[in-house]
Design a protein around this nucleic acid. Structure first.
Length: 340
DNA sequence: ATGGTTTTTACTGCGTC
DNA sequence: GACGCGGTAAAAACCAT
């Protein structure tokens, strides 16, 4: 990595060679000092967050990526991908405008064609078909990539997730999964899957709100895409959500550590499987705050994490039981277990 | 389609400020 | 009385079969 360059030189280089993103990926630069513990604030591009390397405080989330959503590897591609003017979302599909070659082997007067001409027409049909479908797929892709970029930006997802999303989308397109499904739906599903795979999960609700489609349709499409492409999306790690939720509250570093510890012991005890990772993260946060005596209500956690208070209660009971913190449990629970 | 599991919704009672 | 919390039952959602 170009550590021998000064900052200004680096910015010049990266401006002139924007396509060399890989070189900068994962590069971390100290920008400020943590208000919590005095550690260095580091911008974590992969998670689009600014984090303290000492205590893990997330200072800023959803950093905006101002770059274009496409990547160009040569001048030709740059020309073809760059678009100025009408946004792709407004792009028209030319339904009814493209011409068609009839199937009847007759000329304009209704006479049968000669065998040689018939053969020629057959070849033309073949190529016409190839040409048209190819074009329609390319138009489709262009619009979809625009949508993927829009949603990824709105969700504060980093560039590598966009790439993954467009790769997924391309595969879906290639496998002819699009007919019968909206471009928007498949694009949303690609973004969601890519975010999960990249370890920067967003909840389905979050994706659905920035998407233009119905939430139901989105979920249906997502499952379909996953199944048909046999993408393996590992269950999201609760800790990924935990980091994001924590930053919504003023918490002591000790509390955050506690929350992470609770999740760890829960994982080792094997009570996490089958439970929603969002709920677990929310419960860990609440339980830690409870143990450390911080004034965090179930309601507050519930609204941040978009999980019901009931779920938080159930999960945090599990967490505390496994962690051996039975003192903190409400008296009624332990009494019930004694009677049963 | 179906059944089992998990989450949500809605409602209630209890204690505290 | 409002609020935070706990518990329950029924409904809804989810997932694999």
């Amino acid at each position: 990595m170009s550590t021998n360059l000064t900052n200004t030189e680096q910015s010049v280089v990266s401006n002139t060679k924007r396509e060399h993103e890989e070189e900068r990926k994962g590069a971390t630069e100290a920008v400020d000092v943590c208000p919590e513990c005095g550690g260095n604030l580091v911008s974590d591009e992969e998670h689009a967050e600014t984090v303290c390397d000492g205590c893990g405080l997330v200072v800023e989330t959803d950093a905006i990526d101002h770059g274009p959503e496409w990547r160009a590897f040569d001048a030709n591609e740059r020309d073809s991908k760059s678009r100025v003017g009408m946004p792709t979302t407004k792009m028209m599909h030319d339904n009814g405008l493209s011409s068609n070659i009839g199937w009847q082997d007759r000329d304009a007067y209704g006479r049968m064609l000669s065998p040689t001409q018939r053969e020629k027409m057959q070849r033309l049909r073949t190529w016409d078909e190839r040409f048209r479908t190819r074009n329609s797929k390319e138009r489709n892709l262009k619009q979809a990539l625009g949508e993927i970029d829009r949603m990824a930006s709105a969700l504060g997802l980093p560039e590598n997730v966009r790439e993954m999303a467009s790769v997924i989308y391309r595969r879906a397109l290639k496998e002819d999964l699009l007919p019968g499904r909206s471009i928007e739906g498949v694009a949303s599903a690609s973004v969601y899957a890519a975010a999960r795979q990249a370890g920067v999960p967003r909840t389905m609700d979050e994706v659905a709100t920035v998407s233009r489609i119905d939430e139901m349709e989105f979920k249906r499409t997502y499952r379909y895409i996953i199944r048909e492409l046999s993408l393996e999306v590992k269950p999201a790690d609760p800790e990924q959500y935990l980091n994001r939720f924590e930053s919504e509250f003023d918490l002591e570093p000790a509390t955050k550590r506690r929350a992470h510890d609770l999740l760890k012991t829960a994982k080792e005890a094997g009570i996490t499987s089958g439970k929603s990772p969002v709920g677990l993260a929310a419960a860990a946060l609440y339980a830690a705050a409870l143990l450390e005596g911080e004034g965090v209500t179930q309601d507050a956690v519930s609204s941040v994490a978009d999980v019901s208070t009931v779920t938080i209660r159930n999960r945090y009971h599990d967490l505390l039981a496994v962690a051996g913190e039975t003192d903190a449990l409400p008296a009624s629970v332990t009494a019930d277990e004694a009677s049963a």
